[in-house]
Amino acid sequence: MKFGVVVFPGSNCDADCYHVVKEVMNQQVEYIWHKENTVDGFDALILPGGFSYGDYLRTGSIARFSPIMPSVIDFADRGGLVIGICNGFQILLEAGLLPGAMLRNSSLKFICKSVYLKINRADTPFTNRLKVDHVIRIPIAHGEGNYFCDENTLQSLKDNGQILFSYCGADGEESPEFNPNGSLANIAGISNLKGNILGMMPHPERCSEEILGGRDGFYIFDSMINWLKEVGK
């Protein structure tokens, strides 16, 4: 499988994603500079975390108009796997590939810590190596991860099973005290209706090896690879 890591000016988790795909998952991977205008030949795309364009105006709002983005949108429209992590999630929201928007964390603080996530679906390209209701531990690092959408959108996210990850306690308790940033419905990650696009605030690339204190993130990349193998490119 060949992964592409899209690099925007200000991306800073691109090398981590590249490392995990290449050294941990043993797959092919290439960086894609934001000024490129094709994603031909890639099986999956990663929009990494960071502070693209310095978070100017709104997080992700300027990266969303980078020259590479029409190809990313086209790739996603054709059913290609796209995962946006942290700033990558914010860019997917701004691009309209996922519904909703990010607000500043309710605490106004930049939060950098490991959190627990509950798995709500295990039949998706991104979670098929996990189990429903299992709890995984993945770090977050963001100032604007407070997911917001209108009531109808939230209802349709719930009805269509698009909330793949919810912030929770160590035993899976989904209460406000385990919500680090004020996100609606403890949302940590959502997919599009078709299921081929995932946006998540936590950083799976920061916990895919034991040496980093945990490897729960590994299963998200492994799910993508497994899905690409099973369902075909």
């Binding site: 709104r58 108009f65 701004e94 519904p99 928007a101 959408c149 209108d150």
Partner: peptide, 8 residues
């Protein structure tokens, strides 16, 4: 298109 995000 850019200056405001109609969602929020």
């Amino acid at each position: 298109k850019l200056l405001a995000n109609p969602v929020i």
